[in-house]
Design a protein around this nucleic acid. Structure first.
Length: 566
RNA sequence: GCACUCGUAGCUCAGCUGGAUAGAGCAUCUGAUUGCGGUUCAGAAGGUCACAGGUUCGAAUCCUGUCGAGUGUACCA
């Protein structure tokens, strides 16, 4: 649909006729219903440039575009606001588009290849709450981009290399047969190994020796190491499957897989004279910063910065990515700033490649402190998901009677959906205060509210199964119906805005507005009650269908399922 | 110390890149409705957008400073 860009084009054309070739023309949604549907505020800014009166400019634009049948009203208000109201027939005519399987959303005309790097768990430990945001936000972004037509390559940059593995191998070796059974709870295993590492100087030394052996290609160490990874990956896959996150083996591209490229990366920088030796380490310095990016340690070892650079090289040169999104904790913003700058300098990323750090804040508890278990430990992701499902089960079973099978399905869908929605519905940049009650509330901007709205509409549509809808476009009989129908059509613009900012909360914001608007609409405009005229009934059913479709489509992008009944 | 991010209603958050009287939800108060799913709808109240300057027709948004919070700061990932 792209209403906004259609309007922008209309304004741009009008300005061209007036001899103005300004870039950066943007039409925005009206701030209030009284101001129409959309507004253009650029006349005031142009006034200075043209040394003219803003109202006059706005009036000139209005005179030109007034004749366009898309508008029912074009007016100039205040110092030079141009208020645009769309013709209802235009809205009505386009609404049927929203009933198709893409909910009326067009694919991009210029699809590109995008790498989305997300989740990236550490293979030495079990996944914990710290991985939740990256996994959920990353998956949504990948879904969104994919839906809009880009070619998405999901990359799970798993941490399978480093000193912790020497620790695990040492602990495994020294605990003989017991180790095998302990391995099933990787978290425990890691904790115990870590305890030894911290407490026992000798053990720590042996662990470091194992790291050297592992890196040297020792066969026994390698086989143990890959056994750890396999075990750990199984656990991750289990979490991904439960969450409905589209990550699997094909997305895994581990840190260690870049091992063979690291020496070349350092050489690339050396050859171009970008890096220099400082305190025996190979460093890249940046203007205005004292801290360099170190790509090779004084002992010859490589670091994660080196791996990240190798990954950028791989992604641009081998995969051909034009946009690379790193869905990683905001704390690493300096790191990425440096890595991106380095990648550009050395030529791994040319100007046509966008490198983005999709940063997000940390998860906090209700009191604003880091999210921990009661005894101060990290919360396992598996446990968090299980609790969410359990809480969802409690809440819904209070409201209705279900068969055990139904209850499980609904509890699962609501539990996982709520966990995701709560995370996605706030601006990813800021820290996120986790609150069970708020998250599973039916009031407000929550998954449950959306799922419930969907189920309600579905219930109406089921009840109306026998009504033959011969009407092709809705009637748009009142203001609320008009606003709702228009809102349905703006899904397209919304998704594109979320695309540009890589911000899922723009989608949830839209969903909430859509759902509340529908609730108001159907409170005032009964659909199946006695006395509703046949045409009106059909029109309202058409709108209800489109709303349901928009909700379902949007939720699916967020990785959340709808339920036909709650 | 330096760098980055942030500071909006009692609480949790929006605010579409500089626009009109700063918006939601929760909590509080009031009302409607025997309800096409009451886990509803409508309304009230709640604000010096941390503070002080500046830029301009116009600032929560941009710049400077102050205060407060968080994070990061040379060979871990």
């Amino acid at each position: 649909m792209h209403i906004k860009s259609q309007l922008t084009k209309i304004i741009t054309d009008a300005l061209n006729q007036l001899g103005v070739t300004s870039s950066n023309i943007t039409v925005t949604e009206a701030t209030k219903p009284e101001f129409g549907d959309y507004q253009y505020n650029g006349a005031m800014a142009l006034a200075k440039e043209l040394k003219s009166n803003p109202r006059e400019i706005a009036n000139k634009i209005a005179d030109i575009i007034k004749t366009n049948p898309i508008f029912s009203d074009v007016s100039v208000a205040g110092p030079g606001f141009l208020n645009l109201t769309l013709e209802s027939t235009f809205i009505a005519k386009n609404l049927p588009l929203a009933l198709n399987e893409r909910a009326g959303v067009a694919k991009k005309s210029d699809p590109i290849k995008v790498v989305v790097d997300y989740s990236s768990p550490n293979m030495a430990k079990q996944m914990h709450v710290g991985h939740l945001r990256s996994t959920i936000i990353g998956d949504t972004i990948a879904n969104l981009f994919e839906f809009l037509g880009d070619e998405i390559i999901r990359q799970n940059h798993i941490g399978d290399w480093g000193t912790q593995f020497g620790m695990l191998i040492a602990y495994f070796e020294e605990n003989g047969k017991e180790s095998n059974s302990k391995l099933s709870d990787l978290e425990e295993f890691y904790k115990e190994a870590k305890a030894c590492f911290d407490a026992d100087e000798e053990f720590a030394k042996r662990a470091r020796e194992y790291v050297v052996k592992l890196q040297g290609g020792d066969a026994k160490c390698l086989s143990l190491w890959s056994a750890f990874i396999e075990k750990s990956l199984e656990h991750c896959q289990d979490v991904y499957d439960t969450l409905g996150v589209k990550l699997d083996k094909s997305a895994v591209k581990s840190e260690s897989s870049y091992n063979d490229d690291l020496a070349q990366v350092v050489q690339d920088f050396q050859k171009k004279g970008i890096s220099t030796k400082s305190q025996d380490a190979e460093c890249i310095f940046f203007e205005g910063s004292d801290n360099p990016l170190i790509i090779q340690k004084s002992d010859g070892g490589f670091l994660y910065a080196t791996t990240d650079l190798a990954a950028i090289k791989f992604r641009t040169q081998e995969l051909g990515a034009k946009r690379i999104c790193y869905v990683v904790d905001a704390r690493q913003s300096e790191h990425f700033k440096q890595v991106f700058a380095a990648a550009r300098r050395v030529g791994y990323a040319t100007d046509d490649v966008k490198l983005e750090h999709i940063a997000f804040g940390v998860m906090l508890d209700k009191s604003g402190k880091p999210f921990k278990t009661r005894d101060g430990g990290t919360v396992k992701l598996k446990d968090l998901i299980d609790e969410s499902i359990k809480r969802a089960r409690d809440i819904i079973s209070r409201a209705n009677e279900y068969t055990p099978k139904e209850l499980e399905k609904i509890a699962y869908t609501v539990g996982v959906g709520s966990l995701k929605y709560a995370d996605l519905s706030i601006n990813r940049q800021s820290n996120y205060i986790f609150d069970w009650d708020k998250m599973l509330s039916l009031d407000g901007n929550t998954a449950l509210y959306m799922q419930y709205a969907y189920a309600r509409i579905n219930s109406i549509l089921n009840r109306a199964k026998d009504v033959a809808i011969t009407l092709e476009t809705p009637l748009i009989e009142d203001e609320l119906e008009r606003r709702l129908a228009l809102k349905i059509l703006t899904l397209d613009d919304t998704l594109y805005r979320a695309y540009v900012d890589a911000s899922p909360h723009i989608i949830t914001g839209y969903l909430y507005e859509l759902a509340t608007l529908f609730m108001k609409f159907y409170e005032l405009n009964p659909i199946l009650k006695e006395g509703v005229k046949e045409q009106t009934k059909q029109s309202r059913l058409l709108i209800a269908k489109a709303v349901a479709n928009a909700i379902k489509t949007s939720l699916n992008i967020l990785g959340i399922d709808v339920l036909e009944r709650i």
